[in-house]
Design a protein around this nucleic acid. Sequence first.
DNA 1: CTAACGTATCAAGAATTCTTGTTGTGTCAA
DNA 2: TTGACACAACAAGAATTCTTGATACGTTAG
Lengths: 115, 115
Amino acid sequence: MTTAAPYQLARAAALFHALSDETRLAALALLQDGERCVCELQEPLGARQSRLSFHLKVLKDAGLVRDRREGRWAYYSLDLDVLREAAGALASLGAIVPAAARPPRLPVVLTGCCA
Amino acid sequence: MTTAAPYQLARAAALFHALSDETRLAALALLQDGERCVCELQEPLGARQSRLSFHLKVLKDAGLVRDRREGRWAYYSLDLDVLREAAGALASLGAIVPAAARPPRLPVVLTGCCA
DNA sequence: CTAACGTATCAAGAATTCTTGTTGTGTCAA
DNA sequence: TTGACACAACAAGAATTCTTGATACGTTAG
């Protein structure tokens, strides 16, 4: 495998995009202690139905939450694995162990003006 | 302190926004083994001067990178502390230790239709 | 069966972000 | 001093994302 980087970057970028909004982060925070019904989220998030639905869809498309339909209610819950996937992406940038302290990856040869 | 959440969310959202672009993630990846001159980044990122400058500014405004001017060159480097800050935000959403396994935070009372 | 409800989806406009080309600024070399 | 260079910053348009209100759909209550 030579060209895995582009895909991973695109996926990581998509994850971070889903995380890049205050309302969505607040929603994820509310889901921390378990599944919540959409109607329970509206007031604490200060988001009306349509807007909340939009943001939940962004989170769902990124895989960060799952939804479950029950009667006329919809319940959302965190997908911790995907949250960890995001943490992993961050870690691979050196957030946990700096690159200098890790086994070297494929070297990237950089050429530029400032020889 | 009662209302710390809004600020933290805004800051976290800003960090994730800076991370939500492929070109910027690739730039951060290139900076992993240390400081790089702007001119070294252009080719591997496939971004010309103006565009690269824009993305580096986004990263810098978020605090994820520092810049240093030397003569007519500009060098950028990672700020690992800020990268860790992002990792911390993710962790606080349960990415590392699920909320269920942590000491409880202030309870949030949710009211909704689905009694 | 009908009406009210909870939610998703769509459409249109607003806002934000990104790209490209251009201009400005400081630095170095001749 | 002049010209080339590396870079930032700006300006204008393109693209994307977000918000709002409207509509559609399945579900439950009456």
